[in-house]
Design a protein around this nucleic acid. Structure first.
Length: 548
RNA sequence: AGGGUUAUCGCCAAGUCGGUAAGGCACAGGAUUUUGAUUCCUGCAUUCCAAGGUUCGAGUCCUUGUAGCCCUGCCA
């Protein structure tokens, strides 16, 4: 399949016209949180482009704000990218360019294009003007080059307090583009930086730092999201006025949004900080780490990113797409097992009491090399409650009195009787099996319209499942509503006890072991495994259950 | 008259110099099926935000509108 997008067209053009001989892209996260599925789009784009055009791609931490950044995040980010199976060519930190940036700031001052300003934040806001009215000049705008140089140096030396002074570019206070109204280049911040420690107490702003970082690394195509479109003139201005040898080009694309998903890093951090979730890698989080723990595969995420494409139109991807790609990737290769979440006891009245036989079940019908396993079958088994209906609705093919179904890998059973408890609830059902119908026997006498999961009552292992049900939020911000349709709420956790195959759990490997539940998967998260019983997070159902 | 930007099927998204609307997800039928899954066929935009215009011919060009998103952090 030929995929195409406007960015590839630009690159192809640049290559054909000889503007570039090869390309270099970069993925520039700020290490202030974990990567989420939205970042995956950018990662796939940048790494994918570099790969497709045989160029290079750098991983660069855009760490220019010490108060928000931490080494924990740089490590987590590296791990996530590696997990997605991408390899960067060079690893950089914006903070390693602080010396060059400082020199460039001095250069701007010498060219009369930057000045130290002492307006307070409030004053600066006032002087900046509004969207419709021009701003006015700062009274500090016409300081001499010498004075500016001296002041900047003293800012660097730590003579001044946070917020007392900033270095500003001298551009155009009347520009219709707010970014050009003498933007701040350096601010004072006496904080320990995760990489440079206390070496610096002035830090460059994004608008100044980013174009320089790109130019220093000879990035040819600098991809960023739509909200930076307005910043492009400034980006180009800094590259030009700082007399950078390389002229990277900024190209904007729409970031990824997904239905039923919170994608705001601020909001996600809030969930972590308030202990609403266990951490950034909580299976409920839309972070790469969360998805990993939840059992999603790198391939599924990469395929999703490939398939959703790239454009400049605001969009919201249907989360069903992600589910589709996970199913597509896992179905042919996952270890499938049977699990019963809400058990209903079934007594097979014509099966000898005390007898146990082992039936062989394939681990994956689509992959013979996945092998088989033997499961104990006996007189008393459990099936999923929803696989039985006392009063069947129309088009219900599973168990009800008088109907026959196949127990996967075992026999046909026919329901004869329903036993109620004192409350009138269905306590158990009585069935009879037909020995002739044993799986693999080649029985063709009659057909059955449904095959259901089951587990031997005596041998099945018990497990606790934590169900995480999404909740509709009441306090959804109007402008972010579409991203907050569903939200995680600790009160929605439902712990139920279920049953799981004895064999399957004995050697269940943590994150790659999938249980097949009816028509979906759910992952096994052994982080909650205790000694005496197994506790699983049922965090995802990739395909909703039956429609009845 | 603030500036920027986007508008193609329910959701994404291709649509080169204007030539008569790809593909995926979702959905709906049908066939296979020891998971109502998978797989396999079939269907799913006389129409491209709207209205004019140019043209033999326009999603693609022009004009005028409309709607959404972004911009007044010493965040990125």
């Amino acid at each position: 399949m030929v995929t195409s997008n406007f960015i590839k067209n630009i690159i192809t053009d640049d290559l054909e016209t000889g503007k570039h001989n090869s390309i270099i892209t970069r993925f520039p996260p700020e290490p202030n949180g974990y990567l989420h599925i939205g970042h995956a789009k950018s990662i796939c784009l940048n790494f994918g482009l570099a790969d497709e055009f045989e160029g290079k791609v750098n991983l660069r931490f855009d760490d220019t704000n010490p108060i928000k950044e931490d080494t924990e995040y740089v490590n987590a980010i590296k791990k996530d990218i590696e997990w997605l199976n991408f390899e960067w060519d060079e690893l950089h930190f914006a903070s390693n360019y602080f010396d060059i940036m400082y020199e460039k700031a001095q250069l701007l001052i010498k060219k009369g294009l930057a000045y130290v300003c002492e307006l307070t934040p409030d004053e600066m806001r006032e002087y900046r003007g509004t969207l419709t009215d021009a701003g006015k000049f700062s009274p500090y705008r016409e300081r001499s080059v010498e004075e500016n140089l001296d002041l900047l140096e003293r800012m660097k030396q730590g003579e001044f307090e946070d917020g007392s002074k900033v270095l500003r570019a001298k551009i155009d206070m009347a520009s219709s583009n707010m970014n050009m109204r003498d933007p701040i280049i350096y601010r004072i911040s006496h904080n320990i930086h995760h990489n440079t420690g206390d070496k610096w107490c002035i830090y460059p702003m994004y608008d100044f730092a980013h174009p320089l970082e790109d130019a220093i690394e000879n990035i040819t195509h600098s991809l960023c999201s739509l909200e930076f479109e307005d910043h492009r003139p400034l980006y180009d201005w800094f590259v030009k006025e700082c007399e950078m040898e390389s002229t990277p080009r900024q190209i904007e694309f729409a970031r990824l949004n997904m239905t039923n998903t919170v994608m705001s890093k601020r909001k996600l951090k809030e969930l972590v900080d308030n202990d609403v979730v266990d951490g950034w890698d909580d299976p409920r989080m839309p972070t790469i780490a969360g998805f990993r723990r939840r059992g999603y595969t790198p391939t599924s995420i990469r395929n999703l990113c490939r398939e959703i494409g790239v454009s400049k139109a605001d969009s919201v991807i249907d989360s069903q797409m992600l589910d589709y790609f996970v199913r597509e990737d896992l179905l042919p290769k996952a270890q499938l097992a049977m699990t019963i979440l809400r058990p209903l006891k079934v007594v097979i009245t014509n099966y000898p009491e005390g007898q146990v036989e082992y039936v062989e079940i394939e681990n994956n019908p689509k992959d013979e090399s996945a092998g088989t396993r033997k499961l104990p079958f006996s007189r008393e088994i459990y099936i999923e409650r929803e696989d039985f209906m006392e009063v069947p609705v129309k088009k219900y093919f599973r168990l009800f009195v008088g109907n026959e179904v196949r127990l996967k890998g075992a026999y046909f059973i026919k329901c004869n009787e329903v036993i109620h408890d004192e409350n009138g609830e269905v306590a158990e059902i009585h069935c009879t099996y037909d020995p002739e119908t044993k799986s693999g026997s080649g029985f063709t006498g009659r057909k059955v319209k449904a095959t259901i999961h089951w587990l031997s009552a005596k041998e099945a292992q018990k497990a606790e499942f934590r169900l995480f049900e999404p909740l509709i939020l009441d306090d959804v911000p109007e402008n972010e509503g579409k991203h907050f349709l569903e939200q995680i709420n600790p009160n929605s956790l439902e712990v139920i006890e279920g049953l799981i195959e004895a064999e399957a759990t004995k050697n269940a490997s943590p994150l790659d072991k999938f249980q097949f539940v009816r028509h979906g998967f759910f992952s096994v998260d052994t982080k909650y495994t205790t000694n005496d019983k197994l506790v699983f997070n049922r965090v995802v159902s990739l395909k909703s259950s039956f429609k009845i």
